[in-house]
Amino acid sequence: MATLKELAKKEERLTGGHRLCAGCGIPPIVRLILRSTDAPIVATTATGCLEVGTSIYPYTAWNIPWIHSAFENAAATISGVEAAYRALKKTGKIPDRDIKFIAFGGDGGTYDIGLQALSGALERRHNFLYVCYDNGAYMNTGIQRSSATPLFSNTTTSPAGKAIEGKQEWRKDLTRIVVAHNVPYAAQASPHNWADLSKKAEKALAINGPTFLNVMSPCPLGWYTKSEDSIKLAKLSVDTCYWPLYEVENGVLRVTYKPKEKKPLAEWLKPQGRFKHLFKPENKNMLDAFQERVDLEWQRLLELDGKRI
């Protein structure tokens, strides 16, 4: 694997000058993944922050061929691109060279509206990497709940009201759903651990077949946090075991990072305005319930560590 210095020297495939927010987790995630191979890349992006922030005509931040078509169909769009590649290569209409295909989508475009297209593309075994940048809500449209939104989170469609305080449901476990498609590689990652993310992207892009990365993506706007705290918060999501780093390679699960000391969930929640209501004394039961569920999920994962699932 390349060192950070070597990675830094590589061509910038998503250039500066884009309009994503200061402190947004998306650009470091995308830039790192695009550096994880020297092969040419063709990418697509679902409608969302990444698409809007990088492609306002007549400007584009993409130094690689890139297409956006709609919200729910990034996986179907890349299916078409990848099939075209196979067809044109087979008939000698394009040079016989290795090209990588990546689809990017947010949690709304992946867990929710894009799930069907993703499932179809995974089942059809297209040769592509799907990257979900998971910031836990529809941030682009103004912080509405998605099925990736954390428990009790205050969003504009699951507000912390007087009768109902935030989102009442546990998040969808998309990574497990993807794994159930028997893909050769699926992993969770976080931008604070660049080495882990980069290694996973490199691995995924080297595999022939559908691969998947679910990446924690801090969002100062929707989390009500300071821009400069994003990477710190990404780290806390992992150190509290809310967002475990693991991979499933050919059916074998491996936890790729185990915190030496598992931090209390409150350390990740407290700095985030979306969880403010959980720190009212009368809501201690909610905080406890959240911690309990995180512990349960982490334990479940540890039991699977090293096993064929």
Binding site: S69, A76, G80, V81, E82, A83, A87
Partner: peptide
Amino acid sequence: SACIGAEAAGA
């Protein structure tokens, strides 16, 4: 959607 991806790809 796949038609769009493939046609834009050059097919």
